[in-house]
Structure formats: structure tokens, C-alpha cells
């Protein structure tokens, strides 16, 4: 019998080889030491294409141990294609327990959302980042953006926000609203909605960001100041869903998806699937504390 030998080798625990894991781990430590700074890293080959969550996966796989309980969400959902496939991959290469329950998870990988439920100091949230460079829109060369970050020269960024206001009457950045971390680096929070951005500020948990295609890692440690860019007279605002209730739970005051039916009617449903499940089970999960969310929730009571 002819055996197919070429790829018939054992893979390491958590897929990535130990030497590369160490490299990623050292870079993660540096990312934590310099909050908001983008650390270049090796971005090794994975069995999925770069740009499909490899950055998050590199971070997850270098962190994960046998005791971890792993959760992964894609745009708030535990059940979409990206989440299911990456969950399956992590489970098969580590044999870790996986969960949908935000409270139970110790390590959460996310594509473009922060959970509606608050995260504790025992949890780590890993983001998949498509474009880590917030200045790319105003400066195309990496060499130049590095220099701008090094010198904290963010004039072009401020001008672009101002121009946006002059042209459209508002700062038009939607998902991935630029933030300043620890009063030093401007950082892209990955394309999370504005709704989630204030939750980065002084959190209990550690946030790690991995951009596989762009080969960059960065981090926001707990208890770190993260402020969205705003002017004295043009303030940062989050999305509002005035008068909109979730069609499944009847809830208000959460980030909503707009779903269209076959008859072109639309309805809104809470975006975070685990949060929705808990609302349907009448289990009130603890929320984040931030002034923007407080304002929304206070408005509901009135």
C-alpha cells in the first residue's frame, strides 16, 4: 500500500510550532508594555488564508492552554461560518472545552464586536483585525506612518476628521473609530461599532489584537485610558436605536442587527447571540459601565 507521506506528520499542540509561539509571546508582551503600538510579528502560515482571522488565531493559539474555555464570535454571533470553523479548528488542535457562554469563557476571540456582557479580569478578548493602521487613510507609506506614530505627529489624522466634519457635518468613521490609547498612540480598535468603543476604556479584562495579513500585534491592558478622537465642539457619539425593540426578546438598549424578510419588511434583533439567548432565558447578564451606554439605558427608563 502506498501511504501519502508528505503531509502525514503530527502537528504540535495548538498547531503553531513552539519556536514561533515563543516569538509571538514575546511580541505580545512588548505590545502590552507599549499600549496601542503595533508590533511587527512573523504571522506564520495557517491552514486558512490570511485575512480570514489568522491574526486572532495566532494570538489565541499562542495563549491557549489545556485549562482554557474558548469562545469565538463573528459579528456578535457564535454560529456564523467564520466562528464555527475557527472554533472547530481550535478544538481539534487543542482539545479545549468550547462554550457559547460569555461568563464561562476564559479566552474569547472576536471578529468585530465586544460582547454586550461585561468581561472580568480573568478573561482575555482577542480581536481579529483587518487593517491595524489607523493612519493608512491619510498616509499610504508604512515608513511614514511609523515615523508619525514615533513622533506622535497626528496632525493629518485630526485634519481628516475636521474635513469630514466640514464636508458631511459629522465625523463619518463608523466601525473602527480611531482611539487614543494611554494618551500616546492612536490605534484602530478593529472594525467594532462605535457602540463598543467606550468599553475599551479602563476595562477589567485584557484586550489583544492580531492582524495576520498585515503582520501586526497590539494590545490594550486593563485599566488603561482609551479615548475616542473628538473635538471640543464635535463629540464622539455611539449608535442610537431610538424606539427600536428586538423582535425576539423585546429588549432595548443593545446593539441591533437589521434583518430583512422575504416580503421586504425589516425587523431588528439583538446582535450578540449569547446576550440574546440570555435575555430570552430571563437571565439578566451584567452590562458594561460606560457613560454612553448609561445615557441610552437611562433614556429607556424615562
Amino acid at each position: 500500500m502506498i501511504a501519502f507521506q508528505k503531509f502525514n506528520t503530527q502537528f504540535n499542540f495548538a498547531f503553531i510550532d513552539e519556536s514561533t509561539k515563543r516569538e509571538i509571546r514575546r511580541k505580545l508582551l512588548k505590545a502590552i508594555c507599549i499600549p496601542g503600538y503595533q508590533v511587527p510579528y512573523s504571522s506564520p502560515e495557517m491552514p486558512i488564508a490570511r485575512g480570514w482571522g489568522t491574526g486572532g488565531l495566532h494570538v489565541t493559539l499562542s495563549l491557549i492552554g489545556r485549562q482554557d474555555v474558548f469562545k469565538i464570535i463573528d459579528q456578535g454571533s457564535d454560529a456564523s461560518v467564520n466562528a464555527c470553523n475557527l472554533r472547530d479548528f481550535v478544538r481539534r488542535t487543542t482539545d479545549c472545552r468550547t462554550t457559547f457562554d460569555t461568563r464561562e469563557a476564559t479566552l474569547i476571540q472576536s471578529r468585530h464586536r465586544i460582547t454586550e456582557e461585561t468581561l472580568s479580569e480573568h478573561q482575555i478578548l482577542v480581536f481579529q483585525v483587518p487593517q491595524p493602521e489607523p493612519l493608512r487613510g491619510v498616509e499610504r507609506y508604512e515608513r511614514k506612518t511609523r515615523e508619525m506614530h514615533g513622533e506622535a505627529d497626528y496632525a493629518k489624522m485630526w485634519v481628516s476628521l475636521y474635513e469630514s466634519y466640514v464636508k458631511y457635518g459629522d465625523i463619518m468613521e463608523g466601525a473602527g473609530y480611531p482611539v487614543k490609547v494611554n494618551e500616546r498612540y492612536i490605534m484602530s480598535p478593529s472594525p467594532i461599532p462605535r457602540w463598543d468603543v467606550p468599553n475599551l476604556n479602563h476595562s477589567q479584562c485584557l484586550f489583544l489584537f492580531g492582524a495576520g495579513r498585515e503582520k501586526r500585534l497590539y494590545a490594550v491592558p486593563p485599566h488603561t485610558t482609551v479615548t475616542p478622537l473628538e473635538f471640543e465642539d464635535v463629540r464622539f457619539r455611539t449608535e442610537k436605536f431610538p424606539g427600536i425593540r428586538c423582535a425576539m426578546s423585546g429588549a432595548e438598549g443593545a446593539f441591533m442587527d437589521e434583518l430583512y424578510g422575504e416580503d421586504t419588511t425589516s425587523r431588528h434583533v439583538v446582535n450578540d447571540s449569547d446576550f440574546l439567548d440570555k435575555l430570552l432565558a430571563n437571565d439578566e447578564p451584567p452590562r458594561w459601565e460606560n457613560p454612553y451606554l448609561r445615557e441610552v439605558l437611562d433614556g429607556l427608563d424615562g
Binding site: R25, L28, L29, I32, C33, L63, G65, E121, P221, P222
Partner: peptide, 9 residues
């Protein structure tokens, strides 16, 4: 993980 926890806190 322990070193990272110390570095983050």
C-alpha cells in the same frame, strides 16, 4: 500566561 498577567497588571 502568568508573566503576561503580571505584565498587564
Amino acid at each position: 500566561r502568568i508573566i503576561m498577567d503580571s505584565m498587564a497588571r
